[in-house]
């Protein structure tokens, strides 16, 4: 395993710990595993099996839009992007801001002339992409299928050992 590098995102500190292996299929370097720990206060970090998803999908552009140089799956994107060239920015976090709702970002909104003025934030980019596809291919879609709750998570959701005691309230109210 060669340690390829970790990308620290200002604010949320999304770390891409990855091992880059030259795998033949697209003659392209990509991380085998990506550890996503931006919600680590509530959940254990998620280890995303990138290699498995590369094998499972027909085209990188199904997740990476027009950035990987493997064409464009979405016809709408293809109107502007031909997707034949690999771009410098490929990782989700390169375009999907981890914290677009910060007061600073809100007061400096995307200018009107920028077409992509409605990008989901990083957390939503992950979930919309993952759950959206998993629904189609019968992949896991439940929260805890990917996220194991920490103790703080149980406390937040009032679940597990922090679950409300049945006897404390008259049920069936």
């Amino acid at each position: 395993m060669v340690h390829a590098g970790k990308q620290l995102m200002t604010g949320l500190g999304v770390i891409l710990l990855s091992a880059v292996l030259a795998v033949g299929c697209y003659a392209m370097d990509y991380p085998e595993e990506i550890e996503i720990d931006s919600l680590v206060n509530l959940y254990e970090a998620v280890v995303f099996d990138h290699a498995m998803h590369v094998d499972a999908t027909e085209n990188c552009s199904e997740c990476h839009h027009h950035t990987t140089g493997t064409g464009v799956a979405n016809e709408y994107c293809a109107k502007c992007h031909n997707g034949n060239e690999e771009m410098d920015l490929v990782a989700c976090v390169d375009c999907h801001s981890a914290d677009p709702l910060s007061p600073e970002n809100l007061h400096n909104p995307t200018p009107d002339f920028v077409y992509h003025n409605d990008q989901p934030n990083l957390k939503a980019a992950y979930h919309l992409n993952c759950i959206g596809c998993h629904k189609e291919v019968d992949g896991p879609t439940g929260c805890e299928d990917c996220h194991a709750k920490t103790e703080a998570g149980d406390k937040f959701y009032h679940s597990g050992e922090f679950a409300p005691k049945e006897s404390a309230h008259s049920s069936g109210h």
Binding site: S159, A163, P164, H169, H173
Partner: peptide, 20 residues
């Protein structure tokens, strides 16, 4: 999750069922 976040932020009483 929004319900849980609201409960925490507004210091609301314990729910009758867990938020999950």
């Amino acid at each position: 999750t929004c319900e849980a976040a609201c409960n925490e932020e507004q210091h609301l009483p314990e729910p009758s069922k867990p938020f999950d």
